[in-house]
Write a protein that binds this DNA or RNA. Sequence first.
DNA 1: GAGTGGTCTAGACCACCAC
DNA 2: TGGTGGTCTAGACCACTCT
Lengths: 262, 262
Amino acid sequence: MTGTVLTEHIDASSDRAVFRQIADHLRQAVAKGRLKPGDQLPSEVQLIEHYGVARMTVRNALKLLQDEGLTIAEHGRGVYVRARPPVRRLASDRFAQRHRKEGMAAFIAEAGQAAATPHVDMIKVTEAKPPAEVADRLGVADDARVIVRSRRYSLDGRPVETAVSYIPADLAKGTPIAEPNPGPGGIYARLEESGHTLARFTEDVAARMPTPEEARLLSLPPGVPVFRLVRTAYDMDSRAVEVCDTILATDAYVLSYELPAH
Amino acid sequence: MTGTVLTEHIDASSDRAVFRQIADHLRQAVAKGRLKPGDQLPSEVQLIEHYGVARMTVRNALKLLQDEGLTIAEHGRGVYVRARPPVRRLASDRFAQRHRKEGMAAFIAEAGQAAATPHVDMIKVTEAKPPAEVADRLGVADDARVIVRSRRYSLDGRPVETAVSYIPADLAKGTPIAEPNPGPGGIYARLEESGHTLARFTEDVAARMPTPEEARLLSLPPGVPVFRLVRTAYDMDSRAVEVCDTILATDAYVLSYELPAH
DNA sequence: GAGTGGTCTAGACCACCAC
DNA sequence: TGGTGGTCTAGACCACTCT
């Protein structure tokens, strides 16, 4: 029912553009609960008739809401208030040693806790020269060789994260790290077995709109930004042993960190 | 010069929408360096003439790039490749006690390190009932009283962050925490003076597109998401003594965290 | 087939900016 | 004053979804 939605009309004396006024009305309808997540908005034709404007005007209004991440248009069906998917909390202890000891890579272990079905695909392992930013973080020369492990993670069939790991080739060559399946506990378990006990990680978190490529890989609807999370793993000798460049769908994650006040 | 930009033409046999093809060409021009940050894109008229399409088609293409955060349109001047502002790294030790001891609130201390001129405005201090989410984090009843401190932070004249702090009224009443100016070292210094030595913080980080209100307060151009960072401060008795709800411009910040691998 | 949103055309007038 | 982007109209045809 849209009967309780189309109540306001355009204020012709206002300086505010007509399509912004229409967007304002619809936004308010969502804010006040007249439209709830999953509800269908009035169709373009209904909006055209109610407001007495051209189609492009209502489309501009609807585009505005979509760009804000408030609604999602479904071709042939209608425009709906976006139903926020449940978010996963990424705790800062997710790389704690105890998880590796249990033979679980971080993503799989976490998915289990959340009662979601994890899946990993698009696994590709190559050897190459690292990007300059990665070489810098690893503390190796630009022309050093690194193992590049890329993959995509999904939960309950929905892709939520892509990741590319860079490991110095001298640490990875001849170990399962250079293989598509690195074995139980993931590459961190392998690194520790070869004497590089992990001491700490740093994580740099940025957020921005996705590139078209990222939007495709993560099946992102319009109006959803991505986290770019770059993690560097250090061993007990403070040597950087891995850099992991991750793109996360922001509608699927809340990152959770614990800071000492020392 | 746009002479090296308008080289491609529309592939009429492609399934890809014309405006997406135009956006692709311009995006590639930026990726390949034919258009650099700050450069002006071909005007709408130039694009119309080059591609032989209607104005709405090139406007759709330009809107797409703007929504990706790649370009910025300036009314009456032109469309430009967005020049990324320098980002500030927010280190995870920014609330370390030593900063408070030096009599500096976190934001001011950090700005000094970055050689930027900090400014705080729109300071408002009230007493109210906390939002349910905040009451939950503070571990107080929904109808408890809290001091609400809101303010906006700017760097070199550019607003970058809004923050709302909630402090249980019984901790704040009659102290400078309930005053607009809480004194040297900020409210954390006052809390510690009154016996609530800070032990740790948690930070939950989410990202999304801004509401129109947030976009206004932070002067955000289209295509720039915000971080929502909710920090909870705990004292040595593990009592939550403050919840701070912060909105940050993502084009101004990289958040940096340190994680132990214990 | 009826209804939905997606793309595109060909105009119009306006507001802002630089010269 | 001329060029720029911002808003709006009034159409058209298409692709998708549901019944």
